[in-house]
């Protein structure tokens, strides 16, 4: 060490050729383009947002008491967390018929199907088939819009409430829900419903906007001129993520 008189590293290996390892630069270690990689990282961060929402739901639900009687004896009370099939049991156009979770099952199917049409659009993009991309994008936009309208109906029903209502602590009968009071159970039940399904609905809405833009760009031939339909793929990733979140919301909010 004492003999080192120059600033030249003495033991540095001399390279005969540039390094070509996976992480030595000059290539794509993940074999994914910049845009796709950033979409994945954005989705990961979005997964944390939804994960935090669902964790909050789990924590608050466990903080409240469970209804321990027979299912047939269940009634709404602020003392315990409501059983979801008693809250979400209405179907559009069927009046007061009891269809537990029927509508939400339909909504789930619609969203899964929209995911399928989205993959079909991506697949058509790989083949540079402009007409097919347009067709499947339109189907996806349609199913996304149907899902949003269904959610609007679901919210409307949740806010207006069931006909019988619930006798509250102050002696009045309350119907439906708002952020401060609701007929179904603890205040936070309705709050979490609005926040979680609302945050998800916002994502679906953004997705539909992106898809509409993507359809216009496809029609104008933007991607055809660019030589690839990667934008459809990136928006597809986002759309599947929204579907994925709904799968978890469906389980934790409606089934469990």
């Amino acid at each position: 060490m004492a003999q080192t008189t120059t600033l030249q590293p003495t033991a540095a290996p001399t390279l005969d050729a540039p390094r070509t390892g996976n992480w030595d630069g000059g290539n794509e270690p993940f074999k994914a383009s910049y845009g796709k990689l950033m979409m994945w990282i954005f989705l990961l961060s979005d997964a944390f947002s939804f994960g935090a929402f669902l964790t909050t739901y789990g924590m608050i639900r466990h903080k409240h008491a469970v209804f321990t009687g027979e299912a047939s004896a269940f009634h709404f009370s602020t003392k315990w967390w409501p059983i979801p099939d008693h809250v979400f049991n209405a179907f559009p156009g069927m009046g007061h018929a009891n269809v537990p979770l029927g509508f939400v099952a339909l909504m789930t199917m619609i969203l899964i199907f929209s995911s399928v049409t989205m993959v079909l659009a991506v697949e058509a993009g790989h083949r540079m088939d402009k007409a097919d991309v347009q067709k499947w994008l339109l189907w996806t936009i349609l199913f996304g819009a149907i899902f949003l309208s269904s959610q609007a109906w679901e919210w409307g029903h949740f806010i207006r409430g069931h006909e019988e209502g619930t006798l509250m602590a102050d002696g009045t009968v309350f119907h439906g829900a708002n952020l401060a009071v609701n007929q179904y159970g603890p205040v936070l039940f309705a709050d979490l419903f609005f926040f979680i399904t609302g945050f998800h609905g916002t994502h679906v809405f953004s997705g539909v906007c992106l898809l509409v833009w993507c359809f216009i760009a496809t029609t104008n031939g933007t991607f055809e001129k660019r030589g690839h339909y990667e934008m459809v793929e990136k928006i597809g990733l986002y759309w599947h993520f929204v579907d994925l979140v709904w799968v978890f919301v469906f389980t934790f909010f409606y089934l469990v």
Binding site: G51, T56, M59, I60
Partner: peptide
């Protein structure tokens, strides 16, 4: 991990 930890915490608070 977060989920399990906070659900446990929720039960405890309740």
């Amino acid at each position: 991990w977060l989920l399990v930890a906070l659900v446990t915490e929720g039960s405890f608070i309740g």
